[in-house]
Nucleic acid binder design. Sequence first.
RNA 1: GGGGUGGUAGUUAAGUUGGUUAUAACGCCGGCCUGUCACGCCGGAGGCCGCGAGUUCGAGUCUCGUCCAUCCCGCCA
Length: 606
Amino acid sequence: MTSAQAFWNRTHTCGELRDEHNDADVVLNGWVDRARDLGGLVFVDVRDRYGITQVLFDPAVVDDETFQLAGTLRGEFVIAVRGFVRVRDGAQRNANTATGDVEIVARGVQLLTRSAALPISLKGDNETSEELRLKHRYLDLRRPELQSKMLLRHEVTLATRNYFHEHKFIDVETPILTKSTPEGARDYLVPSRVHPGDFFALPQSPQLFKQILMISGYDRYMQIARCFRDEDLRADRQPEFTQVDIEMAFITKDILFPILEGWVARVWKDFAGVEIPLPMKRLSYATVMEEYGVDRPDLRFGLKLATVSDLLEGTDAGPLASALALEDGTIKALYLPGEPGQLSRKQLDGLTETAKQFGLGGLLWGKVSNDGVSGAVKKFLTEEQRNAILERLGERNGFDASSTGILLVSAGRTGQVNDAMSRIRVQLGNDLGLISPSAYEFAWVVDFPAFGWNEDEERWDPLHHPFTSPITEHMGMVQSDPGNVLTDAYDMVCNGYELGGGSIRIHDPDVQRAVFSAIGLTEAEARAKFGFLLDALSYGAPPHGGIAFGLDRVVMLLARTEAIREVIAFPKTQKASCLMTEAPNAVDDAQMGELHLVSTAPAKDA
RNA sequence: GGGGUGGUAGUUAAGUUGGUUAUAACGCCGGCCUGUCACGCCGGAGGCCGCGAGUUCGAGUCUCGUCCAUCCCGCCA
């Protein structure tokens, strides 16, 4: 053994000593959390991931050299302390920490390593900029808040594996170096040295492999799979993220959903202490788009929207008439029953700002009070129109159509109106305190349309992915009427997030060919991209389906945080770089040459 | 690619209509202190005001550009 390794090894962690350990001889290893030098006494709080324990250096116990050393200890120095446990007198007990009833009376200390002054604060009271936290992630990860999130993530992952193992699922690893899959997102590419000019893609998901595994007879598959998408980031999106990936053979939705719901219920019970009522409600895509304007509604509060275009036929009010004249125009309304003054002018301006952000000209609003009507609602709506709108909204939301309140109306292209009104709805939920932060409201969204019209490319694009099975009744419409085909796709949503999405897959090669054809893939293109899948389907494919859950989002919700970076140990910035390692970086010409690559990027000034 | 917010000491922030030596707290260094637990008290060091131009007698402050972080749109299930 070298001298560098010879240090006093801990007998206990910094979180476990209690009254019952009184007089025990112990050794602690850890970081100095705080040191308090009182002159004649030195207190040092020693921290590890299990907790914090106070150590007392008393000149009556330790020799002078040890006592001097204790006085030089600073934050984040790593030490080993030898001593005995002493139960503290009543007034000296500290109820704020788990070990606060005892302290270690030191007999000796070893300074294992010193620490430079910290570039970030590890104390919770004033937080450091995220830029510095990411650069010094090794320090940030020492913070107990982050350590508890990493622990939570570990526990959720473990419980997930156990749950699916108990239900006969097999964990199979799929390739990271693979072929580009067609889920719409940009691929991360890896150049091949052996095959000049060819590239692997990192998987956007293991989609095709898990279907292949079903065809191979594995029946129930699960994987905690890393996925990669080269798209711009958001607070809840990282370029690499983790999915709980599931696939099953011989199933329908009604077989699959209870298994998945059972997993969610267990995880939420164990890690959020919440009982999720089962079964979860199922809402059609058409319903949620109509009532919430998004396919991942926040169901913790009401404020349902309603389309009112039909009530405003023949209107001559400018903004409304021009929306109705559009091919895909619509008008939607939202009503806040109650005090007409419940929103300030500033809040209403904020909502208008949101509407503009989504490309609308503005937001029509007006206060309906006992004295009459104000604002754009007075200007643009007749009394009959207003009453008809309130009638519809009242019926949908359960309020009396004669209630006073604030009416919001938004008119324009359907997509923009839905985007804006769904956001406005959530903004109101927050502004008016309608959202309980401790609530979790789950639901399935089902019956998705198969295809969406792509204006730019003038073709039908799969809304989910092209392996999604149409519902049985619509099989024959794939070629003749693609716009009205519904699929057996489903999302699990919670609090405005999409937690997971999946579908029953196509297992008939003829149906698969029809879908490829409907989205404008020629036979030759389909063969080039997915020949192996078409081949596999032709050798006895069982009916199958599955889902993928965003593990990061699941943990994020359980941890009650709003940034996915908080539950990922080494996340990337919004520009998809790692501030700690400074990846990505340039590589030298020799390395480029081996990979048969030449960069066309403009030279950076060093 | 576009819009919002931010960038001042190791950290977090303040900084007036453009004005002389850029403040404070925590941390760091030195001194004092025997029951602290955000210990206390005294003293000290520490600044490319993100970077680059411009306006001006004079810029942390005004203008333009640029970089980084973050939130959002586009993009992305």
